[in-house]
Amino acid sequence: MQPIIVIGFLNNMKVLIEIAYALYMGFYTTLKNLFRGPFTEEYPEYKRPLPARSRAQIILTSDPDGQERCVACYLCSAVCPVDCISMQAAEADSGRRYAKWFRINFGRCIFCGLCEEACPTSAIQLTPFFENSKRDILKMVYEKADLQVDHCGKDKNYNFYAYAGIVTKSAGKGEHVKEEKPVDVRTNMP
């Protein structure tokens, strides 16, 4: 009988000691932090250089040959979880499909980057520039002219129309990358 009580008491003591130690460690940790000084980078005074892939302001980039990359395929607007992208595609005289108008409502945008991921032509890209708040809500609505830039952004090489196989001013049938000359249906030669 007695040993059990002793063991029980010792066990209880152990628990109490554990509690005391846990409390001590907790308070010690917070106290230690009190004297460690803050890690905060104070934003407007100090602007940390952001990595190229950080997600903020959206742009529409251009091909290496300087033409608009966007083909207005509607994938970015489809994938956008907040429906902030809208556009209308059209056919240019050169045969290229392009965005007749393209609008991003940055008042809604959550900078999730899904549009960039969905873009098959590397046209829509997010940039590190994030200081784009405005006092007028309508100024948050960016039109194509506000979004279009004349550089390639992060993807320096891709040129969709070099591969697409559709006829544009720059390439006809069989003139794209890895394409054979058009088939002559009227010959029976093998």
């Binding site: 106290l31 932090n33 009190l34 890690f39 905060t40």
Partner: peptide, 13 residues
């Protein structure tokens, strides 16, 4: 302020 310091922040400034 103190909570900020306890959490290695600055707190309102």
């Amino acid at each position: 302020k103190l909570l900020g310091r306890f959490q290695a922040r600055i707190g309102p400034n």
